[in-house]
């Protein structure tokens, strides 16, 4: 829910010396992404995507570095990042499983898929397995309603799921 704000008063930001947005990534973004837009702020989403692809989530320090790069305030980057479902402001598992829970998929048996995954991983929706391998999430329509139930595991889509084939699919992930 995009409009629920986080309690930030008195929060301390954990820091490390090594930057998240390193020179190599900066140079790549500067060459490939920045020239596409008339303002630097417009590159916020691509920059956040690049940071998350690299680190798996978006620590506050990474957002601060992004804001310095984009010439905006850190709060503006945090504002944008916290609005979008796909940006993780907390660490997530190596594989993030997004099961579509919208209507076409529910009609074709989404509940059974979620139950099968919860049983297999021993976690509930919204949680990460203790070994940090899987996070199970609910998603709204993934745009493959014709091959539901479906789930996105990181950037790969699994379609026509059954309780059996989703278990196999998860087993096959390294």
């Amino acid at each position: 829910m995009a409009w629920i704000m986080k309690n930030s008063a008195g929060m301390t930001v954990p820091r490390r010396t090594e930057p998240y947005l390193d020179d190599e990534l900066k140079a790549k973004l500067e060459a490939e992404v920045m020239p596409r837009y008339p303002t630097r702020q417009a590159a916020t989403l691509p920059v956040l995507h690049a940071l998350q692809d690299k680190h798996g989530w978006l620590p506050f320090q990474a957002m601060e570095e992004a804001s310095a790069f984009l010439g905006t305030k850190p709060s503006e980057v945090a504002d944008t990042a916290s609005f979008y479902e796909m940006f993780h402001l907390q660490p997530k598992g190596k594989y993030v499983i997004w099961v579509c829970q919208s209507i076409s998929c529910e009609l074709r048996g989404e509940h059974d898929i979620v139950k099968a995954i919860e049983k297999k991983l021993g976690v509930e929706t919204g949680q990460t397995t203790p070994d940090g391998k899987f996070s199970l999430m609910h998603a709204e329509c993934l745009g493959s309603c014709g091959s539901g139930p479906c789930a996105l595991v990181n950037d790969k889509l699994f379609e026509d799921l059954t309780p059996a084939n989703i278990q196999q699919a998860l087993d096959s992930l390294p």
Binding site: A2, R36, L45, P46, Y84, E85
Partner: peptide, 12 residues
């Protein structure tokens, strides 16, 4: 020019 811009999960 033509560019692809990716969203990040928001129906709105």
């Amino acid at each position: 020019q033509c560019h692809v811009h990716r969203g990040a999960g928001a129906y709105i």
